[in-house]
Design a binder for these strands. Sequence first.
DNA 1: GAGCACTGC
Length: 693
Amino acid sequence: MSQFWKPGTEKPRLLDDEEGGVLFFTTSSSGGGYANLERQRQRLPVFKYRTAILYSVETRATTIVVGETGSGKTTQIPQYLKEAGWADGGRLIACTQPRRLAVQSVAARVAEEMGVRLGEEVGYTIRFEDATTQGVTMIKFLTDGVLLREMMDDPLLTKYSVIMVDEAHERSISTDILLGLLKKIQRRRPELRLVISSATIQAKSMADFFQTSKRRRRQEEEELGPIMEPAILSVEGRGFNVQIHYVEEPVADYLRAAVSTVLSIHDKEPMGDILVFLTGQDDIDAAVQLLTEETQNRRKNSSGLMVLPLYSGLPRADQELVFTPTPRGKRKVVISTNIAETSITLEGVVYVVDSGFSKQRFYNPISDIENLVVAPISKASARQRTGRAGRVRPGKCYRLYTEEYFVKEMSAEGIPEIQRSNLVSCVIQLKALGIDNILGFDWPASPSSEAMVRALEVLYSLGVLDDDAKLTSPTGFQVAEFPLDPMISKMILSSGELGCSEEIITIAAVLSVQSIWVSGWGSQKELDEAKLNFAAAEGDHVSFLNVYKAFLQSGKSSQWCHKNFVNYQAMKKVIEIREQLRRTARRLGIDLKSCERDTVVVRKAITYGFFANACHSEASSHDGKYKTIRGSQEVYIHPSSVLFRVNPKWVVYHSLVSTEKQYMRNVISIDPSWLTEAAPHFYQKQRPNPMLH
DNA sequence: GAGCACTGC
């Protein structure tokens, strides 16, 4: 192992971060991309951080702040803007983050720095929680999704004078939609100021996006006056230097390579925790086991290893183990998914081992299936992982791929989420905001037209869009109001008419959480047996109702959950989502009514939303084979379903997972006559497709 | 008889 690594270095640091932060100031007009930006950094004058921000916001419509993430510099911007009077006259400064936790912690930090109480001058809004005070709050932190929701009532975001989009380089779906809409708003509100904070590697594409084409600019300048080009401010991060090591030869098995690298670090390197990036639960559990065995077998050193897994599906208590301080003389090794890349920050990490892979979602608009696959990460992602080693002192990053691979083959940025996803929710949201020409929308990264057409088709079949691809009234507008997948929203609307909205809203809430069952402890057999206590002959959705009912009867007890293999955290979330959905339903005038034990209407309501997912089993087949009505695709009931091996003739499923076979997850039995009742246009005649003309 | 990267409204 000793000759295994070849030290290399990441790009050199360009400036020292002295006296409270200075930075280079540059504009995008010179162009030339990342390399040119680096050159400009050395050539252009240096401004005080605060001066440069204020100057830029006053003179430019858009300011793009780039630099290493986690520098802490972006949290100062809203404060500077407030001091400079941008929040006067009842106007607010908004600052978005892609995660709830980040919203809360950044808001708390800013409130503390400003010496004010959180929720007053400095506040935040996330789903289920509004910590702002009308007329008092001047700086408001919020998730990008919440800001999008706010636009449904106030499309021009008139109460904000400055909107800052933080972590824009992560390119979440909400951020991309938001950037597209903000660019549009700018045309209508020339006084609105935007600050986009991003990693350096994305600076050029961000600037290009906010820069209008020359021809269009001339046209718009005649109408609206001079248009300002975006400015790029480049700021150095606070992180420590991290030395990068590559493998000399490509590794065949990154799991084993990761394990031996951890052991080698433990043998040869000074104390400091290790963070290993693998792809998923299977990988991680295997690596934890290998390392634990090694620790027990070896006599000497490795007994000092404390090996911990980390992934989202892990029970809360196990997750929190990674935050316990490392005992004296021990070395903590955290084996993690991407959750440690952005969502969870571990202090004390000095060594990072990067497999070079992560699980990523891909969507195929032709088959309409979303898949999770192990894929190579991008350079941007690799840098982010590397940075995790430099939070407390200079660290080391061991990349399990060659330097040549990093330089020549790794793509600079990942594919934005919007190009890897089903667009149904995204399209209805834009429609609700009055964006009629979806195919012509100015996206930071345009999704494929196939994906957009597919989304339009689904919305049309749900009766949410009319022949002109306009939102229908009231159905379309009502469906858009719910923070849910449109098929689920449609199911709720129908349940109002069928008299089972209380039950359907419960089901919608359960389908919105990852799983109501615990994973990770106890045997599979025990979990299956626990599930049987709640199994309903009609299918999984009705079984969910049984679990929910029993949970309420237990007095929402965590002990009850523990005994029954039910995930307590998930059930608490179900209650919260359920309350929000009931409020929305009430606002929309949907009858809140229970059908008591009538499962026929419950299944009918589900069919009204999910008729496109209907399947039937062939009379001759005894192997559980089903065919989708729509595409005659071969599918099977997932073994985790209560209808597995029951194989009713007609079923409707909630989602497909494709592995060896196509599996239907969350399935109910239906009567085929409900299909023509629910969607006569879909099942009786050939569907017209106005979107294609 | 099998698998669930990660967010978010």
